[in-house]
Amino acid sequence: MAGSGTAHMRNTVDSVLTVRDLTVEFRVAKDKIVKAVSGLSFDVVRGETLAIVGESGCGKTTLARAILQLPPPNSGEVVFDGTDLTLLPKENLRSARTSMQMIFQDPISSLNPRMTVHQLLDEPLEIWDRGTRAERDERINKLLFSVGLEPDLVLNRRSYEFSGGQCQRISIARALALDPRMLICDEPVSALDVSIQAQILNLLLSMKETFGLTMLFISHDLAVVKAISTRVMVMYLGKICEVAPPDVLYSQPAHHYTRALLNSVPIPDPTKQIRTELLQGEPPSPMNPPSGCRFRTRCAGASALCSEQEPQLREVSSGQFVACHHPIV
């Protein structure tokens, strides 16, 4: 079977989302196919925050969108709450999406500038017929309070009157309006200043507790991921490199790519500067990925085996899974 293995799958009854062998490819010219996500499997259990981390072009956003069937993947299963979303008819898919909401990177452009905050939050409630006018208004007030906004001050204003941080709060309130079970956050703090970033990360953490949410958190920022996740999955060119709990992954990365990625994060302390060998070059084209292990062309530890055989995920320490023929021990 293609893919990077399934050893990290937990297959418990607690799984909220199970993705099996997901492949997304885009045809960009007559015989040019971008292999964005290639045979990926993973599961997310209740209450977990799974972070997906990797550089631009590794397929993390494509993966998130494929889960929501935006657009549907080329092949593979996306089982959410026991139903395979890839098999659902359009109308059922629409209702399934109510319990799976997304927060986007650019909070200002993801809100309709013509709608007031009240309209923005009322829209999902009205479409899904959640309660009477008065009940909906009460719900809207509660939502705004919970994300730290004063309803009386914001209800009749439009998105362009707010800062990026405030817009992201409104987006979060809107995503929570229909009581989703799962929140998919695609780089929710990348566009924000550091002081605002901390506010939004803390808000997401408390929303997760209050609403009992399960989260998929996509980011390129390893420091942000460490602060918010309970499990981390590192991606490279459409494949999984490593899956582990954050403290393990950051202190003893087993994949050469994970280690290289960690070594390139600048640490805000002049006494803790590491000057190791940097990762050279840039990722190869996803139209023509290397054979075997996709990272081998930039890997210091690559051998002949790496070009011949694709490494499968295997457990190297408790809860830590790595797809590498020569993991760092």
């Binding site: 550091v194 002081s195 970033q197 901390a198 990360l201 920022d221 390893l222 420091a223 942000v224 460490k226 602060a227 918010i228 996740s229 309970t230 709990p245 954050p246 403290d247 950051y250 960690l262 994060v265 640490i267 805000p268 302390d269 803790k272």
Partner: peptide, 10 residues
Amino acid sequence: SIPRVDHKSG
């Protein structure tokens, strides 16, 4: 206010 890779997670 900045998250750091050299701090404990969570």
